[in-house]
Amino acid sequence: MIQGLILLAHPEYAGVMQNWHGTLLLWATILLSYSINTAIGSLLARFEGFVLILHILGFFAVILPLVILGEHGTATDVFGTFLNLGDWQTQGLSLCIGMMGNVFSFLGADGAIHMSEEIRNAAITVPRSLLASLAINGTLGLAMLIATLYSLGDIDTALAENPQYPYMAIFEHAVGSKAGAAVMASIIVVMTISATTGSLASTSRICWAFARDHGLPGWRVLKKVSPRTSIPLYAVLTASCIAVLLSLVNIGDAVAFNGVISISVAGLFGSYFIAAALLLYRRLTGGIRSPKDDNTILTSTIVTGLTWGPWRLRGAFGVANNPFT
């Protein structure tokens, strides 16, 4: 995205743009995310709070110029036109492949779960966070998508000007200003870097949790927590190093790197499927106990089974929700 932003401001960059430029920029982003994650424990929460405010304000900063300043297409152009620019065998397959970008935007909605042990009243707060984030981002994302499609113009022109991130060219044509489009695109770049910071925090907690259960090689080191910051520093470092190593693929072949990213999408949704399927199995076989009368969760030093938390769908609605998920 940063390369696309450079291309927007300096079109001559297209002649010298290299894959390794993007890899170095990714390393810088990982370093920034690592620094925020390993600083004092409260910094991450404050950073995420600031990002939430920027997220909401940035939405209006991008969508209002598109709606007010740009020339707009028709409803038929937006809702009735289907393109197959990838030359896939069928239009249906093209639609499914094109879904990948939209699906990717909803990855990480479960991130709050991975931070549960650092959240007060997690049994209530985490489910609320999950549903609130899906509702807010789903609504804003759909609105942004429709506004962008109405401002699309000639798709071939946008692809020619900025083949990797044509939405930046769409912004420029819509607002009639290269500087304005750069500001709008910069907001999205900043938000994406911020999302990387949250992803690193979430991933490192998964790594730490598996290590604590002796589920990873080197668990004796990975499970250690900094006594000063209460942060699993080695887990954060490991997740960062894996990201750095994966980014090396981009130097050789950007298409292969995009393939790795697509595998992560399939892998994450595959993990969601496994969790939903097991929950359905436990629900149907009576493998989850009811909580005490005061709605508190049963706890013991040895886990002997699962207990319903205070946030759940009961009866037939719950059973129907799991296969729907």
Rank of each mutant, 00 (worst) to 15 (best):
I2K: 07
I6F: 15
L8I: 13
A9V: 13
M17N: 03
H21E: 02
Y34M: 08
I36D: 06
I36M: 01
I36C: 07
T38K: 07
T38W: 12
A39N: 11
G41Q: 02
A45K: 05
A45T: 15
R46F: 01
E48Q: 13
F50T: 15
V51C: 03
L52S: 14
L52R: 13
I56N: 02
L57M: 13
G58L: 01
P65V: 08
L66C: 03
L69M: 13
L69Q: 06
L69D: 11
G70K: 03
G70F: 09
T74N: 04
A75S: 12
V78E: 02
F79L: 00
G80A: 00
T81I: 12
T81A: 03
N84A: 05
W88L: 11
W88G: 00
T90A: 07
L93Y: 00
C96D: 08
I97P: 05
G98Q: 07
G101Y: 06
N102P: 07
F104T: 08
F104E: 01
L107Q: 06
L107V: 14
A109R: 03
A109P: 00
D110V: 13
G111M: 06
H114S: 12
M115S: 13
M115V: 15
E117N: 13
I119F: 04
R120V: 07
R120H: 01
A122W: 05
I124N: 02
I124L: 11
V126R: 01
V126P: 00
V126M: 14
S129T: 14
S129E: 07
L131E: 08
S133F: 07
L134C: 04
L134I: 15
A135G: 09
N137K: 03
G138E: 02
G138H: 02
L145E: 03
A147E: 02
S151T: 12
G153M: 10
D154A: 02
T157R: 13
N162G: 09
P163V: 15
Y165H: 00
Y167L: 10
M168C: 00
E172H: 12
V175T: 05
K178P: 13
G180I: 14
V183S: 07
A185H: 05
A185D: 02
I193V: 15
S194Y: 00
A195Q: 02
S199K: 05
R205M: 11
C207L: 11
L222N: 11
P227G: 08
S230F: 12
P232Y: 14
P232D: 11
Y234R: 09
Y234E: 08
V236I: 15
L237F: 15
L246Q: 00
N250Q: 12
N250L: 10
V255C: 00
G259Y: 08
V260T: 08
I261M: 04
I263D: 02
V265P: 00
G267P: 01
L268M: 08
F269K: 14
G270C: 12
S271Q: 06
I274H: 08
A277H: 11
L280H: 05
L280D: 09
R282S: 10
L284F: 12
I288T: 05
R289H: 08
R289Q: 04
S290E: 10
S290Y: 05
K292P: 01
K292S: 14
N295Q: 11
N295A: 07
T296M: 08
T296S: 14
L298E: 09
G305Y: 02
T307L: 05
T307P: 04
G309C: 07
W311K: 13
R312P: 01
F317Q: 10
F317D: 02
G318T: 01
G318V: 01
T325D: 04
